[in-house]
Design a protein around this nucleic acid. Structure first.
Lengths: 213, 213
DNA sequence: TCACAAAATGGACAATCGTCCATTTAAATC
DNA sequence: GATTTAAATGGACGATTGTCCATTTTGTGA
């Protein structure tokens, strides 16, 4: 009949990955042991070795999976908006600060992994991949905006804008990490757009993209 | 004679703290074991229990020590500069991005601890303390600047400027964490001051504080 | 110089870690 | 329904973890 066998197998594999993410979010990396993982996944001890060859590989895979989820989320949002550079940027900023992406669990996972990235090549690689993909997306939008704005060094300005915007978003994430309950998403967005308006007054205002100018 | 006894005791105590920081910087928190620590400190196994009551307390103490070092560094720099708000801000930005403070070891330590902060109350508290002290310092400077600038809602603007500036610096640290060798300190500063110039054109230019206006 | 006490030592200890495999379970095929 | 085989189980294993204390070392004051 169907590949029921393989279906169960893949479900179990995914259970392990999600168990790692749950545990990392809840207890941190250093308390995410094999016992902890298999208990959360409700599977037997041997499964980690069977599916991933060892705990470290599983953790790496969980980091990869988590990174992929983030990028998919941002990318999906991008397809629901207009095609101008400023609309893309607005969507990335809004998406990056939205409840769906910037929430307690994701932030806990992301910072836990990054704290270990320096000492785990595989995790560093995924961290880099996520960063590079996003950076490229943002740069392309700013490059279009800078060209439209007819300013002097459009490439240099687009680079600065990319760098500054991503740095600010990163800082907002840290704010959220440290004070999730008092964090104000609207305020965070307003500050980012204040920066963008200063750089591209024809393209942004304090609430996001300016469409007609 | 002198308190030679106590002097050695305190030196050993400090050796343990520094051994933790070295190990966390080099191998990460999860590989910083008691064996690793005492080997680096060149002391005997029982010393951790003797001085700190246990490994967790020692790690917490190391986090506190590291946080204090950071703040002392920034504060010392502040005393070598002028007294205007914009000079203070410039010094904080320069200091925060200087080799003395933003270097591989400090960054590795800081992010490793913060990755665990969510699950360790003591570390979260020091992280918060460092953040609150700096935030207060920056806000006071911006409040003076905003007042001088005679703008409409000086307190609100000072808050936004504080929030935005610290978020950006935070993001720059992350950049450095991920790509320490290609990181460009001057570029990072220029971007921050570009933001500040946009908010307070009479007080900042792309290279820092404007003194006369 | 000796006796005292504070400090440091290093190994014993139980608990936990991650790995691995002989065995059992159950889906797929005949 | 019987046979085959891939998947899952769960305990054994040695290594390593952090704690703790009986013992040794060493600075201090008599």
């Amino acid at each position: 009949m169907t590949g029921r066998r393989q279906e169960i197998r893949e479900r179990n594999r995914l259970s392990l990955i999600e168990a790692v993410l749950d545990s990392v979010a809840e207890k941190g990396i250093s308390e995410t042991s094999v016992s902890e993982i298999i208990q959360r996944a409700d599977l037997s001890r041997g499964m980690i070795h069977l599916h991933f060859g060892g705990k470290d590989n599983l953790v790496d895979e969980a980091a990869r999976y988590s990174s992929e989820q983030y990028y998919n989320g941002i990318y999906a949002m991008l397809e629901t908006t207009g095609q101008t550079g400023q609309e893309h940027i607005e969507m990335i900023v809004r998406g990056d600060l939205s409840e769906a992406i910037l929430n307690k669990k994701n932030v806990a996972i992301w910072y836990a992994f990054r704290g270990e990235a320096r000492n785990r090549a595989a995790i560093a690689a995924f961290s880099d991949t996520r960063d590079a993909k996003l950076r490229n997306l943002v740069f392309n939008s700013f490059a279009r905006i800078a060209k439209e704005a007819e300013i002097e060094h459009p490439n240099q300005v687009a680079r600065d804008a990319t760098h500054g915007t991503l740095a600010m978003l990163e800082g907002m994430w840290t704010d959220y990490l440290l004070h999730p309950d008092s964090f104000d998403r609207d305020e965070a967005m307003r500050i980012v757009f204040r920066f963008l308006r200063a750089m591209f007054p024809k393209h942004f205002d304090l609430s996001g993209a300016r469409l007609y100018h």
